[in-house]
Structures are given as C-alpha cells and as structure tokens.
Simulated scan of single mutants.
Amino acid sequence: MSTRTGERQQPWSDEPVEQGRILVLSDNPIARSIAVIASTVGRTVVVEAADDGGPGLDPRRGDAVVLCDHDAPDAPGVLRAALASDAAYVAMMASRGRAAGLLDDLVAEGVDVTTLHVPAGHDLGGKAPGEIALSVVAEIVAESYGRTGGPMRG
C-alpha cells in the first residue's frame, strides 16, 4: 500500500539558476532564432550584428559564444578571444570540412581548439534556421548542466 501526500511533484524547479550569457556573432536567421529560443529558456542573449566582431563580445566566466558566420572577417579573432576567455562554451557554425582551414590556422598559431564545438549543436537533423538554433541552444543548456544531451529514457 502506498501513501500519497496530495502534493504533486513538478518536473521543474522554481529556483532561479544563474547562467552565463549567450553571445552570438553575427546577425542572421540562425542567430535570431538562437536569441528567441535561448530567451524563452531564460538565457540572456547578446547578438553582435557587425560581422567584424564589432566592439567585441567580451566573454565572461560561464558565457557561451556562438560564431554563426564562419566567413565573418574577424572569425579567427573572435575564436581566438573566446577560446582564451573563461567562456564555458565556444562554438562555430560550419561543417568540419568548411572549418578545417580556419582551425588549421588557429592551431598553427598555438591556439588550443580542443574545446571548440564545430559544428555547433546536437545532431537533430534539422535544416531550417530555427531547427539548427534549437540544436545549438540544447547543446548549450546540456553543457551548462554537465550533461551530454542524450535521451532521458532509460
């Protein structure tokens, strides 16, 4: 015989969780979708529209940096700064093939790219900007909780 207290357990917590910002370069449909989805899950998002890095994303401890335009003129500089910062997550939108030259250049400069997520996001199979953004935000959330992002069913 089981006893029930009448209180329902909820699968979420009402306790606020402090998370870093999500910094996105540059302004495009995927970046705008990341902003909408990440804002919905309670994350602060900064989209830097200037494809040259603008005034600088200035990542802080716990931030996530997402380079949505691997062809941006300052992509190497943005990645250099983000990887050298205390950012918790650094990612670039690009296939491994498209990113290879940029990664080779960074490695030749002595930049440690082992923590760089490329391609960014989880393998959900999505092709539309919102679907790609969902996979990136899911990866950021999973990483912030030390999870892999796999299915919850056992």
Rank of each mutant, 00 (worst) to 15 (best):
I22G: 02
V36H: 11
L57C: 05
V66M: 13
V66L: 14
D51H: 15
V36W: 09
E15F: 06
V45R: 00
E18K: 13
D69C: 07
R21M: 05
V46F: 03
G20K: 04
D58P: 00
P55D: 15
E15S: 15
A38D: 03
D51L: 06
V47Y: 00
I30H: 07
L23V: 05
L67E: 05
D69S: 14
S39L: 03
S26G: 08
I30L: 13
D71N: 08
L25G: 04
A49E: 12
P16D: 14
G20E: 01
V41H: 04
L23G: 06
S26Y: 02
P29L: 10
R61Q: 14
I34A: 08
V65C: 14
T40S: 14
V45G: 00
I34W: 04
Q19K: 15
V46E: 03
D69A: 13
L23K: 07
Q19Y: 08
V17R: 12
I34R: 08
D52Y: 13
A35Y: 03
P16C: 13
D51P: 14
E15D: 15
H70K: 07
D27C: 06
R21T: 06
E18Q: 14
V47C: 00
D69M: 06
A49P: 07
D71V: 04
L57K: 02
A31F: 05
L23T: 05
E18A: 15
V41L: 13
V66G: 09
D71H: 07
A64R: 07
I22E: 02
G54E: 09
E15L: 14
H70P: 03
L57Q: 02
A38H: 03
L25D: 04
E18V: 15
A49C: 01
G53V: 10
V46G: 00
R21A: 11
D27W: 01
N28I: 06
A64F: 08
D71A: 12
D14F: 14
A64M: 10
L57Y: 04
G56D: 08
A35M: 12
P55W: 08
A35R: 14
H70W: 08
A50D: 13
D58L: 11
L23Y: 05
A35P: 01
E48M: 05
G53D: 10
N28Q: 06
P59V: 02
V66E: 09
E18F: 04
G20H: 04
V66H: 11
D63A: 10
D69N: 15
G42A: 05
R43K: 09
G56A: 11
V24K: 02
S33I: 08
P29G: 09
I37S: 05
E48R: 01
D52Q: 12
R60S: 13
A50E: 13
P55C: 09
D69H: 12
A31I: 06
G62W: 01
T44N: 03
E48D: 10
V47W: 00
H70G: 02
A38I: 03
V65Q: 07
